[in-house]
């Protein structure tokens, strides 16, 4: 903390006792609610030894859940990435009517319960749903199958990248792009060579958060999955099934992979924040 005058230290600081008390309360609170659960996941996972841990992860149903989780994220994240860039391009670089309404609508999925996010697709594609008969007649299975899981995941992670890019690109303005275009560059050249380098850290930041949620989503996916072992179970759903079967070691073994993913997410996110600060690119977003 530079620039703090001596006077400020004398007149506007808490006594040592209060400082120590506040730090202790914070650390205790965070330890109880964050540290303890994080440690407990790994303690429970390894409670019966390394061999059982490995066996739990090698089990075919666990393996297929891992593959489905990665497949889902591999579709949902790029889909929302393309959308986020397109939405941020038209919102940040142009002036048009209804812009603030559009921004509000993009945020909508954050206001909806995950369970309801799944429910809306059941209403559309379920047996009694709007398109249920048509889908059945053409033998297309969306619900209780992989496409439904992907759709529900796209819904819950919908705003992540867009809401990261919109304030960032708005803050950067459009002068650089206008200069590029008036110097004769094409639209796509401008986009790839001017815009993308300017927003790369914000983009990465949004992708990381979007991916963490896509791989970890439970409520929405649970409603549309049908819980078919080895077929429509993602890792979080597999954790639930194992836990409800009192197979705690296996449940926590799969959970430990997800906890590891969370830790990697936090580390990469912190690194991106540092890089963005160093390169002078401002990062926006409420989760910062």
């Amino acid at each position: 903390m530079t620039g703090h005058s001596l006077q400020r230290k004398i007149s506007t600081h808490e006594s040592f006792g209060v400082t120590a008390l506040l730090i202790s309360i914070s650390l205790l609170y965070l330890l109880l609610f964050l540290g303890l659960p994080l440690i407990a996941v790994f303690v429970e996972a390894f409670s019966k030894g390394w061999n059982l841990y490995i066996a739990a992860l090698k089990e075919p149903d666990a393996w297929s859940a891992i593959k489905l989780t990665f497949l889902t994220a591999a579709i949902a994240v790029p889909a929302n990435l393309v959308f986020g860039v397109a939405a941020a391009w038209c919102i940040a670089k142009f002036e048009f009517k209804g812009k603030s309404l559009l921004i509000t609508l993009i945020d909508l999925p954050f206001a909806v319960s995950p369970v309801v996010s799944g429910l809306v697709y059941v209403l559309l594609f379920g047996a009694q749903g709007w398109f249920g008969h048509w889908l059945q007649a053409h033998d297309i299975k969306l619900l209780f199958a992989v496409p439904g899981i992907v759709l529900a995941t796209i819904f819950v992670t919908f705003p992540f990248i867009a809401r990261e890019l919109i304030p960032l690109m708005q803050a950067q303005g459009k002068e650089e792009e206008e200069a590029s275009v008036s110097l004769g560059a094409s639209g796509w050249q401008t986009f790839w060579l001017v815009t993308i380098p300017n927003i790369k850290w914000g983009l990465l930041y949004g992708v990381i958060l979007c991916n963490a949620r896509a791989m970890g989503e439970f409520g929405a996916v649970s409603v549309v999955s049908g819980h078919i072992r080895g077929l429509t179970n993602t890792m979080p759903l597999h954790v639930e099934i194992l836990y409800n079967e009192y197979n705690f070691v296996a449940a926590f073994a799969v959970a430990s992979l997800l906890a590891l993913l969370a830790l990697v997410t936090l580390v990469v996110k912190t690194l991106v924040e540092l890089q963005a600060k160093r390169s002078g690119e401002p990062l926006h977003g409420e989760t910062r």
């Binding site: 659960p37 429970e44 970890g216 439970f218 954790v239 639930e240 959970a255 906890a259 936090l266 996110k269």
Partner: peptide
Amino acid sequence: ALVDLPFALPTAVAGIT
């Protein structure tokens, strides 16, 4: 950095833990 853990940790993992 750890404060953001609840954003990153899947809810089912938090639940069983």
